[in-house]
């Protein structure tokens, strides 16, 4: 076994990383073929997805078993904290790239296209403004209003941040019922949010004419809200796993970093949504 006396748990060789690499290889190759309408793309992509899911279940399952066997000492716990913190930082930077694109489009490229030489020589008659499809894309759309579903979604996510904290209080005070209820509520709120977002996308495509191809507004709108939605999906799945573990009696009041990691992630998703609501929907 790999634990030193009072030391750091070091896992034995594992095949899961290899499964993950092969799965990503298959998925990337499949996606490339699919984009170019070549045979086998869909199958490879699906195989990659299944492989990745298998890897995640197997790998995290192993980590959970190790944790429940008491192999993770205080120092391992601290490593997880650093690791999750750095991971969330990398996610912040990922969203920063797309927010950067949004601000650049609004503040620099669109005003630039609607003024000066560009206006006179290239795009006469383009008035700029925001939202816009840009001077050369002929598509009429209505921007998404912030005060319908988006405002409701803000409420939902903010409430879910509260319920997950409430669940955490329950866990720390040993009130398992409060923990389970809080988690279940959080998952439910997350899923309702996702349902609303799917409806919103459908509405945007069918009723508003707002599509991915609707100029810089459509591109930034769907890219930012889409990647956020993906993160809510991942976060909901993680919360579901935590709920399952909680129902199975995992976590102790003094040892439950998995729970905290997921709640950190959930709060991060929450904060990104607030920025989205302000900069994508509202202003």
């Amino acid at each position: 076994m790999t634990t030193q006396p009072g030391g750091y748990y070091l896992p034995a060789p594992s095949h899961w990383p290899l499964v993950g690499s092969l799965a990503l290889m298959s998925a990337a190759l499949g996606a490339t073929l699919l984009i170019h309408d070549l045979a086998g793309g869909g199958w490879l992509l699906a195989a990659g997805g299944v492989g990745l899911a298998t890897m995640l279940v197997g790998w995290f399952g192993k980590v959970i078993r190790e944790s429940e066997s008491g192999l993770h000492g205080a120092q391992v716990d601290q490593s997880f904290r650093w690791g999750m913190g750095w991971f969330i930082f990398s996610e912040v930077m990922f969203f920063a790239a797309f927010f950067g694109a949004l601000f650049y489009g609004r503040m620099i490229s669109v005003p630039d296209l609607a003024g000066g030489e560009q206006l006179r020589l290239l795009w006469p008659g383009y008035s700029g403004g925001w939202p816009t499809t840009g001077p050369g894309v002929e598509a009429a759309f209505t921007p998404m209003s912030p005060w319908g579903i988006p405002a409701l979604n803000t409420l939902l996510l903010l409430s879910s941040g509260a319920t997950v904290t409430w669940a955490h209080w329950g866990l720390k005070r040993g009130r398992r019922g409060q923990l389970n209820l809080g988690l279940a509520l959080t998952v439910a709120l997350g899923l309702i949010f996702l349902g609303f977002q799917v409806y919103e996308y459908h509405y945007a495509y069918t009723a508003l004419g707002l599509t991915l191809g609707a100029g810089i507004y459509g591109a930034t709108f769907f890219m930012l809200t889409g990647f956020h939605g993906l993160h809510v999906t991942i976060g909901s799945l993680m919360l579901l796993v935590i709920l399952g573990r909680s129902l199975a009696g995992h976590f102790r009041p003094d040892h439950h970093f998995a729970f905290e990691a997921v709640s950190w992630y959930w709060h991060f998703v929450d904060v990104v949504w607030l920025l989205l609501f302000i900069f994508v929907y509202w202003l």
């Binding site: 797309f98 489009g105 669109v110 991915l212 191809g213 100029g215 507004y217 769907f222 890219m223």
Partner: peptide, 24 residues
């Protein structure tokens, strides 16, 4: 993020880097 925008501009009709759509 940057190469993802390239990917969607190439294949999914976005206009991040296309002046016609207000991008650059």
């Amino acid at each position: 993020g940057a190469v993802t925008m390239l990917l969607t501009d190439r294949n999914f009709g976005t206009h991040f880097f296309d002046a016609a759509g207000g991008g650059d």
